[in-house]
Computed example of a mutant assay.
Amino acid sequence: MPDGPARKETPLSPRAAATRQRILDAALAEFAEKGLAGSRVDEIAERAGANKRMLYAHFGSKEELWMVVLERAYAAKRAEEREVEVQHLPPGDAMARLVSFNLRYTARHPEFVALLNQENLHQAAYLRRSEDVPALYSPIVDALRGVLARGVAEGVFRQGVDPMQLYISILALGHFYVANRHTLSTIFGAPLDTEAAIAAREAHITDVVLGYLRP
């Protein structure tokens, strides 16, 4: 079980910052492929064109590197979420855009799905350590709250929908699809990671969500 505070980042020279970034990129790829337990520091270092001493100097341990990679993965998604503009759209179109964003982001970033699956196997032990957890709160929950309120006011959405529960449902409908795309493709005998397949899934999820919200 991890313990102790997260390591603080300090200003780095351009060369050191570039090395650190290469290590993070290599670690993301390695962790997504093999998980925390299956990844090896020497393999991450080799993939980054660095050495183990350099990796430990920047991150202290494999576990600390995992936590930084996880935080950055969340932060990257949250940054894109903040760019999703829905205030000017009618409630139904706004909800469809939020559904589309989540599915499309997940489909573009299967490594994010892999990291989350791994962290759940560890019962969020590393995420709970993070001092950045409050910043990882999804802005889309607030966007959903606003869209729901407008939809209720305009009579196109029913009342009493919990934004957090709706957010989790939207995530689940996309996350399961991407996380299980290989087995589902094999079972159904059709590739589910093509643009056509993702578009069909997007349309289905949108219909499910808007059908649930109908008064």
Rank of each mutant, 00 (worst) to 15 (best):
A75W: 08
T10C: 11
R128V: 08
Y56N: 03
K62N: 03
A32V: 10
D25R: 09
P139D: 07
A107N: 07
A149N: 03
D162Y: 15
D162M: 13
G92F: 10
E111T: 11
L116M: 14
R22G: 03
L98M: 01
A27Y: 02
A50N: 05
W66M: 07
G35I: 02
D132R: 14
E119A: 11
L116P: 10
G160W: 11
R47Y: 09
F31E: 02
E85H: 09
A6P: 01
F31Q: 01
F101M: 01
Q123Y: 13
A73H: 04
R108M: 12
H204P: 02
S130A: 07
D193H: 04
N180D: 15
R128P: 05
H182W: 09
V99M: 00
V161W: 04
R108N: 11
P163Q: 11
T10G: 11
E63V: 00
G189A: 06
H175M: 09
F176M: 10
L89W: 01
H109I: 04
G38P: 09
V68I: 15
A18H: 00
N180G: 12
D193R: 05
D3L: 13
V152E: 07
T206A: 00
D3S: 15
R97Q: 02
A125R: 12
R97W: 02
K62M: 01
L171D: 14
P5A: 09
R129D: 12
T183V: 15
Q87I: 10
A75R: 06
P91V: 05
G38K: 01
E81W: 00
T206E: 01
S138H: 11
K62H: 00
A114S: 12
V208L: 09
K34V: 08
P110E: 03
P2Y: 07
V147P: 03
A76K: 08
P11K: 01
R7Q: 00
L98W: 03
A37P: 05
T206S: 00
D25T: 06
A124S: 10
P163H: 07
L144W: 02
W66T: 03
L36V: 05
P90V: 12
V208K: 05
E30M: 07
E43C: 00
G189R: 09
V69F: 01
Q165Y: 12
L89A: 04
A179R: 05
H58Q: 13
K52P: 02
T19Y: 07
N120C: 14
G60Q: 03
R214V: 09
E195L: 03
L127K: 13
A17P: 15
E80W: 10
F112E: 08
L213A: 06
S130P: 03
V178C: 07
R15D: 13
F157Y: 07
G60M: 03
A124Q: 12
Y177V: 09
G35P: 04
L70D: 06
Q165D: 14
R181N: 11
S138W: 10
Y56F: 14
L121T: 11
H122Y: 15
P139Q: 07
S169H: 12
D42R: 13
P91D: 06
Q21C: 11
S185Q: 07
A107E: 02
A50V: 10
E63W: 00
N117A: 14
A57Y: 14
K52G: 05
V68L: 10
V156G: 06
G160D: 13
P134S: 09
E46C: 08
G38V: 08
L24D: 02
